[in-house]
Amino acid sequence: MPIRHTARERRFRVLVLRVALLAVLLAIWQIASLGAPAFVLPGPARVYSAWSSLVATDSFWTDFGITFWRVFMGFVIATVVGVPLGLVLGASEKLGEFFEPVLSVINTVSSSIWAIFALIWFGLSDWTTIFVVFMTAMPLILTNVWQGTRTVNADFVELAQTFRMSRAQVLTKIYLPTILPPFFSAARLAFGFGARVSLVAETLGASSGIGYRLRQAADLVQTDQVFAWTLTLVALMIALEALVLKPLEQRLFAWKKRPGAQ
């Protein structure tokens, strides 16, 4: 029981700290905005009112949905391509050795360059953003799954063999559970990166979506709008992390021994 008590106390302490931090940041922002014109740095109140009128428009939700859909598509395609490819490269040493340099090259090319290529190839379409998200997320997922296959315990494979399991059973019962943790951390990173680069892609090559609205607002010097969009995004990512990814991770990896939880 005493352990539970301290855990709850700790959580409360963290909450207090977070709220205090938020208050401090808001105060700094407010003070700073007093000394600058609104088109350079709008104050919290102004941004809030811009945000409320933004949320009230129909296009807010459609833009939101479009961006989310593009990121999601790019991410899903990256997973569908990256996971089997990672498994294949992990299963065959020769193929892995052969393709290793390709991965390094892809990893060194910056996302903005992919955005430019995408613009040339796909023009102003959804596929520009989807492609950029894909090119950012896919190598991450592939690499992690590939590395994950190397950590598969040969003893477990041998165990499956003593039970005369088929290759497919070994794949689903031994390989997949082993690569799930590295896949999950890669997917998390990939989704985060994907969401960020999607904005870059949208400012360059889209006529809808959050990135496009951001550029529009910047072009019209509607700085409060830029702030409103940015805060929306930040809130969304934090919510996604706290409400979806964290609980999912805790559920999936409940079997893991936590360090220090002895």
Binding site: D155, F163, S166, Q169, P177
Partner: peptide, 22 residues
């Protein structure tokens, strides 16, 4: 085997079930 070779991601019951799944 010499080692128990229990799959860490499965509960005791599901480790036992492993023998039947094949």
């Amino acid at each position: 085997f010499q080692e128990d070779r229990l799959l860490p991601w499965r509960t005791a019951a599901r480790n036992v079930a492993f023998g039947l799944e094949a």
